[in-house]
Design a protein around this nucleic acid. Structure first.
Lengths: 364, 364
DNA sequence: GCACGGCTCTATAACGTTATACAGGTGATG
DNA sequence: CATCACCTGTATAACGTTATAGAGCCGTGC
């Protein structure tokens, strides 16, 4: 097809190996020869055939990031970070969409795709510890997010239980008592939801609040529509909550919508909090309070670990790394002066329109 | 590394070529032999080395979709469609992020990446006709979106001018007269914005409305923050518009935010419309009226065209295809009974909370 | 009985690259 | 002057696959 090493070699009047060395820097080449070769390369427009290089070297320079849905902004934002980090390390990152499909995840784990990528970063949702342990393919694997623990692979995630604690503590601190959790899947196959529910229950107990199963609403998936439906169903039962903790920001945004439709004011009647800190949550009405994982850290760490394994370096530190998170308070849980002092606080003077505290909501 | 053809051949007691024929179906193989080979494949867990196959066949089965930003939901939604379409045709689609960077787009056009993918679907924003024409790499190229015309490549896009017309007609039909356009970049390098502005001006003229340059607000990029800032600046000038037409849904969502902060009611005081029909717009408060391109059609067509070219088929039909779009009326331009009858309509009885017409906002 | 065609299967030459082994030449050192 | 080390450059063998040419074998028709 294109221009190859042989063409360059002929043009420059040198051997194949010399051209390869110029391109590749494996062996030193004399200055005069190098220039002749470089000129030939520029004139003919040579670029190496990655397939052949792969065949010879055993590496492609390609790594994959597999996520359950491209349309979840959390993953899109993570992907942009990972792509630039990979580029900085000389790798190309390709995106894979598992669509939260078990077969797709399994295919990635030991399927044929493995032969063309040097390593895989996977956010598993439908497979568990056993499937990961049964993996036969040899290329390095880094897991991100929750769901699979105690496997001999690098694993980057936030502490979900602690994140839930932080969210509930915040809601309790602003005087909320009937706190709902939206997004607990009934099936046992999504461990992250279970971890977040566990944190929710523990934090309620720590605050001396009762655990009410009716306030925990399951969803099939973790999108806006799921959150909206779950909150609608919850409100239909009567006796509404005074706060909603969403499994993630998308679910929480769906909750905002359902609450607005039902005529509940946020945050006055119901406070809402999510997890992920997607950009969208800075523009909702009201803006969304959230637990913000350090996406930059997650993306960078995942790529760096993977590349280190690919290049065979001894990687220091534990396999599992928990990255930090922080609480970003926005309008959906009210401004500090609008907190419920107590369940029977007098004259809640909450302004009708809660203005953002920052002029630029890009990075509060 | 892994198991290869030779291993299988030894195990099954046949030649390399026979195994290849079993895997590949290029030549018929006797039933007994086929079974022996298949058994060996299953036992050893063979999967072909794509690099070597590529080297030999000249094809990888990989196609790329390059978009200016992964975090724009429009592209994420398009990508999911394209990925499944590619899979149905036996290809793997990898995502590339140009980050709206000129160098990145040029590198994709004739850079080294080209050697590992069989074809490219590109949404250009920083390059124009000349750069595309200067392309030397040989693999097929399909352009999506706007910006580059009159080049010898397939090109899938909506009719931007017509889309703008539809948006403005709608705003005029509901009684709006001072219509702003948000998202016109000053530089000449983003032709789609120019096309949409042209449609805006033409439609204003057709409706007998004056063109007011002050109501056209430029932005650096096309995100929520850009829309918010542009509308803030516009409002700061005084004499606010009664409608805002956003370059895309993200810009329009930023506009919603700026309007809410400034205390303008949507749609009562200012109507807002965008383009793209991203899912997010079904959950904003108020929900966002939009011009919905047929993303499924765009994604499918782009992949099919590309694959047809890769496989050397004679592709019928014109190079440039304009896909359909439709207007989705939601709360941000009000319910039909709330239309402004005239600029001086008596007693606008607009309900304080505009409820959605549909129970399920997934697909109105 | 022999040539021939059809059917399986095999041997092998690419594909473009990189790493190894080696060759030739030059300058320094003993 | 001989030896050695070094520096450049070359020839070539892989890497794993697929397509081509061809080798056996068997049955059929003359």
């Amino acid at each position: 097809m294109g221009v190859n090493l042989k063409d360059i070699a002929q043009r420059a009047g040198v051997s194949l190996a010399t051209v390869s060395n110029v391109v590749n820097g494996y062996r030193p080449v004399g200055e005069r020869t190098r220039q002749r070769v470089q000129q030939a390369i520029d004139e003919l427009g040579y670029s190496p055939n990655l397939g052949a290089r792969h065949l010879r070297r055993g590496r492609t320079g390609l790594i994959a990031l597999a996520v359950p849905e491209l349309t979840n902004p959390y993953f899109a934002e993570l992907a942009e970070i990972a792509i630039s980090e990979a580029a900085a390390l000389g790798y190309t990152l390709v995106m894979e969409n598992t669509a939260a499909d078990r077969e797709a995840e399994l295919a990635l784990l030991d399927g044929s795709r493995q032969r063309i990528i040097d390593g895989l970063i996977l956010s598993p949702v439908r497979i568990g510890r056993e499937e990961v342990l049964a993996r036969t393919a040899g290329s390095p694997l880094v897991l991100i997010g929750e769901g699979v623990y105690d496997v001999p692979h690098d694993h980057i995630a936030i502490d979900n239980v602690a994140a839930s604690h932080a969210a509930i503590r915040h809601l309790v601190a602003i005087g909320r008592r009937r706190i709902a959790f939206i997004g607990a899947t009934p099936g046992g196959d999504r461990q992250s939801a279970h971890l977040r529910v566990r944190g929710y229950r523990e934090a309620l107990a720590a605050a001396g609040l009762p655990y009410r199963p009716r306030l925990v609403a399951g969803t099939d998936a973790f999108g806006r529509l799921d959150g909206m439906r779950a909150v609608r169903d919850l409100l239909a039962l009567g006796d509404p909550p005074d706060a909603v903790f969403g499994y993630n920001d998308l679910v929480a945004i769906g909750a905002l919508r359902a609450l607005a439709e039902a005529g509940h004011r946020v945050p006055e009647d119901v406070a809402v909090i999510g997890i992920d800190d997607i950009e969208e949550g800075r523009f909702t009405a009201p803006t969304l309070t959230t637990i913000a994982p350090d996406k930059r850290e997650i993306g960078r760490l995942a790529v760096r670990r993977l590349v280190a394994r690919i290049e065979g370096a001894e990687v220091a530190g534990p396999l599992t790394v928990q990255t930090p998170f922080r609480l970003l308070r926005r309008e959906s849980t009210g401004t500090p002066d609008a907190d419920h002092r107590s369940p029977t606080s007098p004259a809640r003077s909450i302004p009708p329109v809660v203005r953002p505290r920052e002029d630029d909501p890009r990075d509060p």
